[in-house]
């Protein structure tokens, strides 16, 4: 295994694959009563088709904001961003991505199946097709058999899996995940990480994944984006080439520890800048 690293010049990297997300000199400033808050500053990033990109950094570094800008839930105040060659707004209108939030955000009055079919209902897909796709999505997250249950009857981990099934149900090529396993215990988290990797290997989706766990970021990603706060910016981009069907055991290998060390160094450097 080799470790390729590219620092701050990702845009110039030779690419053979199609760029799904292309970000150029992006910045976002919130105007507050206490003066402007520079949430994102001068961000350059390309996410290619089939990438699994993790965003890691301390809280306030803008990793969630960046994901929300990609999802058009937040609007950039400067720079350029395109999703599949169009603006984030157009991409959202075309339902180009599935978004998994920090909390499951399942609607309590809908059964698990009807929660998973919610986006399909909004997209006006026929009833038979909706049920069929919900079955497939629930199978992917190993939740078949729980269709008729209500969200509050499921454990936290199962609820989060249901929310992933919901994001998968309409088969968008891009999956945006905002600390989806942040609230879960480590055993459940490991299991879901394994499942997520399998899913990624099988479907060849592009995933953007926000986390603040170094092992999680290194284990899952094909590309790790290290960010630092005030102003939120990218300080390092690390590419790994672990095989797609990696197992949890790779966490014991020297390569893994080397990447983890590098991520930690990057985080530390980002921190010392403002103290």
């Amino acid at each position: 295994m080799t470790l390729k690293t590219v620092v701050n010049n990702v845009a110039e990297m030779p690419t053979s694959k199609k760029a799904v997300v292309d970000i150029n000199k992006l910045s976002l400033t919130f105007q507050t009563a206490d003066g402007p808050v520079y949430a994102l500053s001068d961000v350059d990033l390309t996410i290619e088709e089939g990438d699994f990109v993790s965003f890691i950094g301390p809280s306030g570094c803008g990793k969630t904001t960046l994901l929300r800008v990609i999802a058009d839930l937040e609007q950039a105040t400067g720079g350029e961003i395109s999703i599949n060659g169009v603006t984030p707004h157009e991409a959202r209108e075309k339902r180009a991505y599935g978004y998994v939030f920090q909390a499951p955000a399942l609607l309590p009055w809908r059964s698990i199946e009807r929660n998973v079919t919610l986006p399909l209902e909004i997209m006006e897909i026929s009833k038979e097709e909706r049920v069929k796709r919900a079955q497939e999505a629930l199978k992917l997250v190993e939740l078949n058999g729980f269709e008729k249950k209500f969200p509050w009857q499921l454990s936290g981990g199962m609820q989060q899996r249901a929310s992933i099934a919901r994001a998968l149900s309409f088969d968008a090529d891009l999956l945006l995940m905002d600390e989806p396993f942040g609230a879960l215990d480590e055993i459940v988290r490991d299991h879901l990480n394994e499942q997520l990797l399998k899913l990624w290997a099988r479907t060849n989706k592009t995933v953007a994944f926000v986390t603040h766990s170094i092992p999680e970021a290194v284990y899952l990603s094909s590309k790790i984006v290290v960010m630092s706060p005030r102003p939120g910016r990218i300080i390092d981009v690390i590419e790994t080439d672990f095989p797609k069907d990696r197992s949890l055991d790779i966490r014991e290998t020297p390569e893994f520890l080397e990447v983890a060390h590098r991520v930690r160094e990057g985080l530390r450097a980002g921190h010392s800048n403002d103290e």
Partner: peptide, 22 residues
């Protein structure tokens, strides 16, 4: 909640769709 409203926004759900479904 804000989260649920954001969720509906990611599906590009219309005003009436969000009203009746959420």
């Amino acid at each position: 909640g804000k989260l649920e409203k954001d969720l509906m926004a990611t599906y590009a759900s219309s005003y009436w769709s969000t009203l009746f479904r959420l």
